[in-house]
Amino acid sequence: MLELYGQKFSSRLLIGTARYPSLAVMQEAVKTSGAEIVTVSVRRENAGGKDGDTFWNIIRELNVKVLPNTAGCYSVEDAVSTAELARELFNTKWIKLEVIGDKATLQPDVVGTLEAAKILLAEGFEVFPYCTEDLTVAKRLAGVGCKVVMPWGSQIGSGKGIIHEEALQRMRAELSGVSLVIDAGLGAPSHAAKALEMGYDAVLLNTAVAGSGNPVKMAKAFAQALEAGRAAFEAGMMKPREIAQASSPVAGTPFANTANARSS
């Protein structure tokens, strides 16, 4: 079971609710994915508040745990204020903390993220910080009390998968007591399987499903990949070898050592 701040989940997928062709497709994709946690954002109201109501009613029908984010925040102050609004709006202590440092890469400002995490933890939040593959930063986040750390696989929405595999392997080995979630950059179900094979606890994705040709079908594909990846991790995978090793037994191979029979 996946454990996040003491709560247990059978699905290892956290799924985003943005960028689907329609709310109906989003709802169906989330259901099909089996995800028990969805991410949402907090935005200034427009359209007389009706947009927020329509969206929120659909989310409530899904009967899932909500993880609000601080997406779009570029400062500690904005991220903290947005988290406080999210807590009021969604009535949850959970916050996916994003403090972005660069507009082009949407790379997290890891210094700001650590600072904001400290403030929010002190205010009683349960913080899910989005960070890079940097081991020191991940350790510092865990050190200040984050029970979940969410390094990127690659840039948000890029679909490139896990591009810093060695660093993320190291992070998994060093942070055995923390729930680690690969957040951002996954594009294919095989990327998600890979994350769980590496021992990561879960993945968080959005565009890979929402932006696919058939989000509902892709949601199913990710669910299957995650199941396979986790089972592989639990089974314990073989160690890669430098040279070939025959799969079939060598002893008893027919016609072995008979090449010279005629001449003897």
């Binding site: 935005r43 927020g52 204020s81 709006l89």
Partner: peptide, 10 residues
Amino acid sequence: VEIVTPRQGG
């Protein structure tokens, strides 16, 4: 004053 609502997010 900030007035906010739930919205789709990743």
